[in-house]
Structures are given as C-alpha cells and as structure tokens.
C-alpha cells in the first residue's frame, strides 16, 4: 500500500532532511520509499513542502503530492496560512509541533501534538537561533507511519555523525514516547 506524507515547514527547519530520514528508515526495513524536496530554489524562512512516499512495492510516480494521508506541520503558525483540509485525503491525520496541547483544533482532522521545539531546546539542539525540530518530528511521525523507533534512530545515525547523531536520535526517541492525540476537537 502507498502512503503519501506531506511535510509543511519553514525553510531551514529541516523538513527535507526529515523526509530523507524517514525514507531511509523505511528502506532499511525492506520497504520502498521516495523523499522529495520542495522543488525549487533555497527558501529560508518561507513555507516549504516536502514529500515522502512509502510503499511495499516500487514507487513509479514522481509528481508532487496534492492530497496526503499524513500531514506533518513543523510550526503552529503554518496553520494560519494553509487550509489543511485542502491538503488531506479522507482518512487523515496531522502531526503538529506545538507546546499548546489545548490547541483549538477546528479542522475536524485527527491531530497528534508534540512539543518538538521544547524537546530540541532541552537538548540544546539549536542552530542559527532556531530550535532544530526535524529529528523530534521524525520520532513523532514514526508511529503513524508504522516505522519502528529503532529504524528511525538508525537512519538518524546514518545521516549525522558523532555527538550530533546521539542528540538527534535522543530527540526522536523522546518525541516517539511523548506524541499525544489532542483531545480538544
């Protein structure tokens, strides 16, 4: 079965790397995967979409994802500028980086919350003044994508080296444990 995920992030938050880490995790488990960056030039600070396809069979299509099964939103602010209903299929989920578990979810979409920025700040994962939320987000997304946390941790260790790999892997592990369904619909 083909699962299509869209990652909405601000350029510089590591949405593309998150897609790659999750694709690597899936491939190590024998699946097929495709990680597609936002097509275009560098866009630090502006909204970017990255795509992730996972499947049991080889993936042939190469176009962008118009409607996703899973939407990962790397910053709460993004909800103010996009209509998530337009980006999601029927049987759908959002994973949202927010410190506010009481977020008023008016979208009618099943929404999982994770304080990825808080996890990153606690681990001192900061670059150019921004908390590095992408690895925590991969941990939070792993459950919805049926990926083991071990495979995600291994993919992170293939992507980074040394101390950086350890800290990022830790962020993913914490997020995997702490991701929660938002109760307020």
């Amino acid at each position: 079965m083909l699962t299509e995920t869209m990652i909405l992030s601000f350029g510089g938050q590591g949405g593309v790397t998150a897609a790659r880490i999750l694709a690597l995790a899936a491939v190590s488990g024998g699946k097929y995967a495709q990680a597609i960056p936002h097509f275009g030039a560098e866009r630090r600070g502006s909204l970017v979409r990255s795509y992730l396809r996972l499947s049991d069979k080889p993936i042939r299509r190469h176009s962008s994802i118009k409607k996703a099964d899973l939407l990962a939103v790397f910053a709460e602010k993004i909800l103010r500028i996009v209509d998530v209903n337009e980006l999601l299929r029927d049987n759908r989920q959002i994973i949202l980086n927010t410190k506010n578990e009481d977020i008023k979810n008016k979208t009618g979409v099943k929404c999982y919350c994770i304080d990825a920025a808080g996890i990153a700040l606690n681990l001192n994962l900061v670059a150019a003044g921004w908390p590095i939320v992408n690895t925590a987000m991969t941990g939070a997304m792993a459950r919805s994508l049926n990926l083991s946390i071990d495979s995600v941790v291994n993919a992170i260790k293939q992507t980074f080296s040394g101390k950086l790999a350890e800290v990022n892997a830790k962020a993913a592990e914490i997020a995997y444990r702490e991701v929660r369904l938002c109760e307020t619909f």
Partner: peptide
Amino acid sequence: MDAFQLSHTAEV
C-alpha cells in the same frame, strides 16, 4: 533526467 523529479528525489 528530469530536474528535481529525479535529480533531487531520493529513491531506492
């Protein structure tokens, strides 16, 4: 090969 669809897309 196509820009981005292949050049920048990671596949197996």
